[in-house]
């Protein structure tokens, strides 16, 4: 099966990566480049103290909150920009501005203006992501079919039916694209936000390990979180996308 084949290739490719890493670690032979077993041991240690799970959950909660806000606000904004020429003319320079504002600037300003608290952290991440979502969904809204909108109007679909059966299915690929690139961006930025101004989470843990030059723990956390994000991609986004694309030839 194609899926098994793809899985096989992924496994092979990851295996080669781990092998190269292991060889490099053996050659360098330094605490600063631990070999895979050392990283796994660090992972187990962190897991046993319960710190790993706690920090992962905290970070995941932040990712979920800022991701949800960014998708909601970004989609609404993007659809508005796509449907209204006036709104597009008025607001797209802002979108471009925020799109190009470095994440770090937004984070620092959020902390400075709103204090070192949870809302500021989540807001900072969301603001970083909103322009991306808006730009993607704007493409989707611009491409909405007029033919189908007219059809829905003549057949008196009403607002809810039109949204559910005509508009949202057309936007689904754009939601998926925004969600996918969004997840990757959001979790990276959440770590930075945690590193700069939160007393817990993966980002905070990484900073503590950084100060101790504890590379094994850094890699252990990166590995754990990377796997979670991969699981979300494989277990949530891809199945949803497949279901949404069932109708395609």
């Amino acid at each position: 099966m194609a899926f098994a084949g793809r899985l096989g290739w992924s496994a092979l490719s990851l295996g080669v990566f781990v092998a190269l890493w292991w060889i490099a670690a053996l050659v360098v032979d330094s605490r600063l480049l631990p070999d895979p077993p050392t990283v796994v041991r660090a992972l187990v240690v962190a897991a046993e103290t319960g710190e790993l799970i706690f920090n992962l959950l905290v970070t995941l909660a932040r990712v979920a909150a800022s991701f949800a806000i960014a998708m909601l606000v970004g989609s609404a904004l993007g659809i508005l920009l796509g449907l209204s020429r006036t709104a597009d003319r008025l607001l797209s320079p802002w979108v471009v501005l925020f799109l190009n504002l470095p994440a770090l600037v937004i984070i620092i300003l959020a902390y400075v203006w709103f204090g070192l608290n949870e809302s500021a952290a989540i807001l900072a991440v969301a603001i970083n992501k909103i322009p991306n979502v808006a730009v993607t969904l704007r493409e989707g809204a611009v491409a909405l079919s007029r033919d189908l909108a007219e059809m829905a109007r003549i057949y008196r679909f009403g607002r809810w039916k039109t949204l559910r059966h005509v508009i949202l299915p057309q936007l689904a690929p754009f939601f998926a694209a925004a969600a996918r690139s969004g997840l990757a961006l959001v979790w990276k930025i959440v770590l930075v936000v945690e590193l700069l101004g939160r007393p817990n989470g993966v980002g905070f843990e990484l900073q503590s390990s950084f100060q101790l030059f504890d590379v094994a723990t850094i890699l252990a956390y990166a590995l754990a979180f990377g796997m979670i994000v991969q699981a979300i991609e494989l277990g949530l986004i891809q199945p949803w996308e497949r279901a949404a694309n069932r109708w395609r030839r």
Binding site: L148, M151, H165, V166, R246, W247
Partner: peptide
Amino acid sequence: SPRLLPWR
């Protein structure tokens, strides 16, 4: 043209 909803 038919104007069907391809996803239904």
